[in-house]
């Protein structure tokens, strides 16, 4: 599959502080790529470099085959959607007028407004002034704005950090729908459940360096124990080996109707992050 983003030996320094030390990765067209790391690890800096809002100190970053420094042209901006920590709306305008402006800027028909509001669970809120919206609703309108033109490449910096579980689920469904339509999504998050639910591959970023990069499933399998935790009818939990030696034991539990649940003993992405970096995601 074609790479839509290619980053090689990317470095960024702010004075004596090195935000990115030597970052190399690529993102394939059509995938959801998760960039995971705690606050200050360099996630937003990377997004800003990839969206031409910041110049790298050294190294290269390419999107659509061109250097990201050239992404400021109108041609490429039409293909990209961006939500970062400083994305904002016009407070004195209502939801509809905010989205209408961006329909005009991106050449999108106004009918799309109802569709994107549906995607973020805000159908019927068009006339509400933005200044009256809660933080979560505001975040959803910002997401709706990014979904308007169905970008080829969507950068999302902590998109669901202000949302409750119900609305997070709506946003995740919307993102998966965009992915189905071919949008590549570059997502930064420190929510490991979000990364597991959405991402095809994840990179662990810590102190400006990528420590690990693979699919969530592979990362968990590589570090999993070859055992299962079995919950029995009497409430006890039993560890059973995964190999042939555990098969008889499992058969016994099942034939005697004792089996309640079975869980594979894989670490969570959060556990792996702590193991690799020695830091918790927060």
């Amino acid at each position: 599959m074609e790479n839509i983003i290619e980053v090689t030996s990317l470095q960024k320094a702010f004075g004596s502080s090195r935000a990115l030390k030597d970052v190399t990765f690529s993102v394939k067209r059509g995938e959801i790529f998760g960039f995971l790391g705690p606050s200050g690890s360099g996630k937003t800096t990377t997004i800003k470099i990839l969206t031409a809002q910041l110049r790298p100190t050294s190294g290269s970053a390419y999107a659509f085959g061109v250097s990201t420094e050239q992404l400021n042209s109108e041609k490429y901006r039409q293909k990209v959607g961006i939500i970062t920590d400083n994305t904002a709306l016009y407070g004195r305008l209502n939801v509809y007028d905010n989205l209408k402006l961006y329909c005009d800027l991106y050449g999108v028909p106004y009918q799309r407004i109802a569709e994107v509001l549906q995607m973020v669970n805000l159908a019927g809120e068009e006339k509400k002034p933005v200044s009256k919206l809660s933080k979560g609703m505001l975040q959803r309108v910002i997401l709706a704005r990014a979904f308007l033109h169905e970008p080829e490449l969507l950068f999302l910096d902590e998109p669901t950090s202000a949302l409750d579980p119900v609305n997070t689920k709506h946003i995740h469904e919307g993102l998966l729908l965009l992915k189905e339509k071919g949008t590549t999504i570059f997502l930064t998050t420190h929510d490991m459940n979000e990364a597991e639910a959405l991402c095809d591959r994840v990179a662990f970023l810590n102190d400006g360096e990528i420590r690990l990069l693979d699919s969530p499933k592979k990362l968990r399998q590589q570090r999993g124990e070859p055992t299962l935790t079995v919950e029995l009818a009497d409430g006890s939990m039993v560890i059973v080996p995964k190999g042939p030696e555990g098969a008889d034991q499992m058969f016994r539990y099942m034939s005697s109707n004792q089996l309640v649940s079975v869980q594979s003993n894989h670490p969570t992405l959060g556990d792996i992050f702590v193991e690799v970096t020695g830091r918790k995601l927060a």
Binding site: K75, T87, Y90, L105, Y106
Partner: peptide
């Protein structure tokens, strides 16, 4: 001040 200018800058508008 409200960070909305960046939204315009990042749009396809020249």
């Amino acid at each position: 001040e409200k960070n909305t200018l960046r939204g315009l800058m990042l749009s396809p508008a020249s």
